[in-house]
Nucleic acid binder design. Structure first.
Lengths: 396, 396
DNA sequence: AAGCTAAATATATTGCCTGAACAATTATGT
DNA sequence: ACATAATTGTTCAGGCAATATATTTAGCTT
């Protein structure tokens, strides 16, 4: 069992990955740019690119001598550079958000552009695993149909669930209804379509998504709080997700012990509870969380009071994380993120009272797509990591 | 600025590091063992070993055909293998624990065996940085003298301080008296002796040390609590130390907000406070923490009551970490570790009440050498990482 | 058309690993 | 004592990937 073999072949793999990663990050790349980025010679860079073209991952733009886009400010002199771009339609990935009541699947191309999306609901909370998997499968197939592509072109699927998932993508706790769901889902989608399924915790995927396309772009020490019904944290330290021994890193059970908090209830849940308890005109009814934010925006004192209490509570939650983890930024995400913007001043101003290292606090712009976005990034990471081993499906 | 160059030369470096790391971990290694470990061919392994011998890092044991130690159970047939071992005296590292009142320096050889040790005290708490550095320097030179070696043979120095240190070894907070101490220490020891100084947080080093030679051997998700006067945590996740944005990961300020805890006071501090407040025969005096543990061992009810309160409190502390970080094991370290063993049953039995993912809890066997041990490991990590770039001093 | 420039290509060379053939050294069986 | 098997060491040709250097190419300028 070779543990750390380093063979010449490995070089090509590493360099090809570096080149591919750079090309993915830009619209088009030239040989010279790649030389600067990778430190390789031109000859080597070109060789890698030829290889990637042959394998279908990138393609060369032909320069029809007409107008080669004088985008780059510098005067265009000398022989024009060959230009390479990602062959973004060469394959697709799936990003799946498997919630308690609903599943959403999104299809994205190799750039990460979402080209199809579909949702499905579970009939009940206690349905058997087979039925649950069937709903997931249907959502995936519908999303693929909406994207005008087919299952054979899917290179990997990322999937997020609201349960601890360890580093290897396994669900270890068995008390949830997720028990054995991981293996079943993996096997089913592998058997049906040949897909590789990468399971992850939903909050962790949210962190991936937020760092990729949200307000945490480029932040290496980032925490994302999924804050709707129940608080859950995705923790990224030095650009890597934390999992802990059994994938339970980021669980917030300790909030039961924190003064002024007392539970891991999320923002929507608190707003509902407190507006019902406060007894306004709608007391006794099912006061929706959205209503509280609307009332507050209209100046209702009772609603404002509730938001103030929520701000105080969230400040304590964030401060406790800030103390132990010391992130640069904490992002509030999930379906409530849009409304939660109004809480930010109240949270930020209170933080210094509770921690010596207050992070920047923002709300996610991704809304309820935050988990699928992270699942897409997770799948793309896998694809890029294994590009040379994955065979691209034939061109359509 | 090449970001991810992968050149042929890199292979030799990587392979040499793998071979060196394996040889360090065993007494002697044979070519066949190295082949199995690295996945390389015999010819390649031998080439790497010859290289390492030429550079002075390892040496070959001569097999005087007499009795080649039939240690390995299997029948010894065939041509006897060449055997390589670490040239452990080829260089030394320093592990320095810079406390508030005292500094300890330890000298270790390349195996990590401590061969010299020395301590020094600071005249007062508010002495200028130069004086503090002079005390550290003196302790280092004394430790080297005790080890019968000299400053020129030191390959790197690890140093731990009780302040946040970021990934790059810089102290960012300036409110402490550590302000600018990092740069000063680095420059001073570089100028005086040419040493490379690697600064780290003391709790982080404790985690390194504990995983290396303590009760956390081989545990990848490990938390070490320095629990003497003030609680501080060193967090290791997936075998890597957590730093956070500014090195403040593992700070325990949030305990102020945790019910049943309320401060980040350590075990010794609590024992002193509560035995003084309890008003026993020695009330009003300076009741030492050690005395409380002695009294409890003798059956004194008041002392036992105090230890019970400490157990409850530590259980809450550990549970809060277990929830957010999910380590496999939590180690209580520092000078109180020896006494703290008696607390373990009380802590362990209470954990399930406070967290769904209770870790194994142990006390460190390293005593107050835990930080220097980690500092040595930190320095050795650096040396092994840069072995091919570091020139070994001439043989003495 | 001549000249300039940046990029691409061609050719030779180097470093590192592999694979196979061959040599060395020991234990075992008769 | 001798042959044989087993294990390791040594040597050398070959391949792959990257570098270095020289040469060619493509577009623009004058």
């Amino acid at each position: 069992m070779p543990q750390s073999a380093a063979t010449p072949r490995l070089l090509r793999r590493v360099n090809a990955q570096a080149v591919l990663a750079f090309i993915r990050g830009t619209d088009v790349a030239t040989g010279t740019e790649l030389m600067a980025r990778t430190g390789l010679t031109r000859a080597s860079v070109i060789a890698v690119c030829e290889d990637l073209i042959r394998r279908g991952w990138i393609r060369e733009l032909d320069t029809p001598r007409g107008d080669p886009a004088p985008a780059t400010g510098s005067a265009r002199k000398g022989r024009p550079a060959r230009r390479f771009e990602l062959n973004h339609g060469a394959g697709y990935v799936l990003g799946i958000d498997i919630g308690a009541a609903t599943t959403t699947a999104a299809v994205a191309d190799l750039r990460g552009t979402v080209v199809g999306r579909s949702s499905g609901s579970f009939r009940a909370a206690d349905i058997p695993a087979e039925e649950r998997i069937a709903v997931v499968d249907l959502a995936c197939r519908q999303a693929l149909a909406a994207a005008c592509t087919d299952p054979a072109r899917v290179l990997a699927a990322g999937a997020g669930i609201a349960a601890p998932v360890d580093r290897d993508g396994n669900v270890l706790v068995t008390q949830h209804f997720w028990g054995l769901f991981d293996v079943g889902l993996r096997l089913a989608l592998k058997d049906l379509h040949g897909w590789t399924v990468l399971l992850e915790n939903d909050a962790n995927l949210a962190a991936l998504g937020e760092r990729w396309r949200g307000s945490g772009a480029g932040v290496d020490d980032l925490v994302v709080l999924l804050a709707g019904e129940r608080l859950g944290a995705g923790v990224m330290e030095s650009g890597r997700l934390l999992h802990g021994r059994a994938g339970a890193a980021g669980e917030m059970g300790y909030l039961d012990m924190v003064e002024g908090v007392g539970s891991s209830d999320g923002i929507a849940s608190l707003a509902r509870q407190w507006s019902a308890a406060g007894g306004g005109p709608q007391a006794g009814g099912t006061a929706s969380a959205r209503r509280v934010f609307e009332d507050a925006a209209a100046g209702d004192p009772a609603a404002l009071e509730i938001l103030d209490r929520i701000s105080e509570r969230m400040a304590r939650v964030i401060a406790s994380i800030a103390s132990l983890i010391n992130p640069e930024q904490v992002v509030i995400g999930g379906a409530v993120a849009e409304s939660a913007g109004i809480l930010l001043p109240g949270i930020t101003s209170r933080l210094p009272r509770f921690t010596a290292t207050p992070p920047r606090v923002t709300v996610s712009p991704l809304g309820d797509a935050i988990v699928t976005m992270g699942a897409i990034r997770h799948a793309l990471d896998y694809v890029e990591e294994n590009a040379l081993e994955l065979a691209l499906p034939a061109r359509r």
